[in-house]
Amino acid sequence: MLDHMELRIFTEPQQGATYDDLLAVARRAEETGYDAFFRSDHYLRMGSVSGQPGPTDAWTTLAGLARDTRTIRLGTLMSAATFRLPGPLAITVAQVDQMSGGRVELGIGTGWYAEEHEAYGIPFPSLGERFDRLEEQLAVITGLWRTPVGENFDFAGRYYPVTGSPALPKPVQQPGPPILLGGMGPRRTPRLAARYADEFNLPFASLADSAAQFERVRAACAAIDRDPAELMWSNALVLCCGRDDAEVARRAAAIGREPAELRENGLAGTPAEVVDTIGRYAGIGSRRLYLQVLDLADLDHLDLVATEVMPQL
């Protein structure tokens, strides 16, 4: 048995999914014991897929799931700060937290996919400015949530100045829903994580790269006298599990990938191989894995991991 490792399901609906597709996955994940259902926050497909019938909005989806599920936690990896103003985003997330009975988590990042901004008329400033804006967004969102009821919130921001806000509504979770930050940025990412994150997540990163970035974040925590043990450490990896090599190959082909490449870079192979890979991530301090499920119609994939992998964690 491994040290406890939580498994969460992570979807990429910009590749083409309806709300009902996502609901089916979220409900199966809930029924089979996964800790959470997360989705990306993107408006444009990636790669050669058609993207039909088109993207769905992340927070609209999570609002629906808040009412259509009962126990599973819900969140984003990662909402793009470029898509939304921080005041309205704080309201939206607080409302979905209320709608779900306190099951929501906010993953947020700078935004990076230039083409989706062009495709839907969203301004896309330079990377430095995007980091500046993300830092202000985090200050505004957490400030609004944490302001005591009956008091006002002010923030002298360059991009998002706030004056006399009643800072309502409040989320169910106090002082607010968990905030996830992540990525491989060497300086500003660790600093922001140390200050604002409840969880630090690395998507599709090798063991060596993950260990090195975790260490940078721990150092950034030490620099502001924060205990790194307060942070949840997590990774996201593409999932391709099969009962035997033939099933692994079939699932790899369904998502346009090669089994050997997935075994090297993802969470792939038989249940025993998957448990072994999970153990290596646990060994560098990761305590939560987001399993990127790309074939949303293959609910048996979730069942297999729930019955053959989860009991060994």
Rank of each mutant, 00 (worst) to 15 (best):
H4C: 13
Q14G: 05
Q15K: 04
Q15C: 09
G16L: 00
D20S: 14
D21S: 01
D21T: 06
A26L: 02
R28W: 03
T32E: 08
D35R: 12
A36C: 06
A36K: 01
F37T: 06
R39Y: 12
Y43F: 15
L44N: 06
Q52S: 15
T56F: 03
T56G: 11
D57H: 13
L62C: 08
A66D: 02
A66K: 00
R67F: 04
D68F: 08
D68H: 12
R70I: 04
G75M: 10
G75A: 10
L77R: 02
M78A: 13
A80H: 12
P88R: 01
L89K: 05
L89E: 02
A90F: 07
I91L: 14
T92C: 12
V93T: 10
A94F: 10
A94N: 07
Q95P: 13
D97Q: 07
Q98C: 09
R103N: 04
E105T: 08
L106G: 01
G111F: 06
W112Q: 09
A114D: 14
H117P: 11
H117K: 08
E118A: 14
A119H: 07
I122W: 06
P123M: 08
F124L: 03
S126E: 12
L127Y: 13
E136H: 11
L138H: 00
V140Y: 03
I141H: 03
T142A: 02
G143W: 00
G143A: 03
P148Y: 03
V149T: 14
N152Q: 15
D154P: 05
A156N: 14
P161T: 04
V162I: 10
T163G: 11
S165Q: 01
Q173Y: 00
P178Y: 09
P178T: 10
L180M: 13
L180V: 12
L180K: 05
G185P: 04
P186Y: 06
R187H: 12
R188T: 00
A193G: 10
A197M: 00
F200G: 06
F204E: 12
L207C: 05
D209E: 14
A211H: 03
A212Y: 09
E215D: 12
R216M: 00
A219I: 06
A219R: 13
I224H: 10
D227H: 08
A229H: 12
A229I: 10
E230P: 07
S234D: 02
N235D: 13
V238I: 15
G242Q: 02
A249K: 05
R250H: 09
A254N: 00
E258R: 15
N265A: 15
N265F: 14
G266E: 01
L267T: 04
A268D: 02
G269N: 02
T270G: 00
A272Q: 13
E273A: 07
V274Q: 07
V274T: 04
T277G: 09
R280L: 08
G285N: 04
V293A: 06
A297L: 01
L302A: 01
D303A: 11
L304C: 00
V305R: 07
E308V: 10
M310W: 06
P311V: 10
L313H: 07
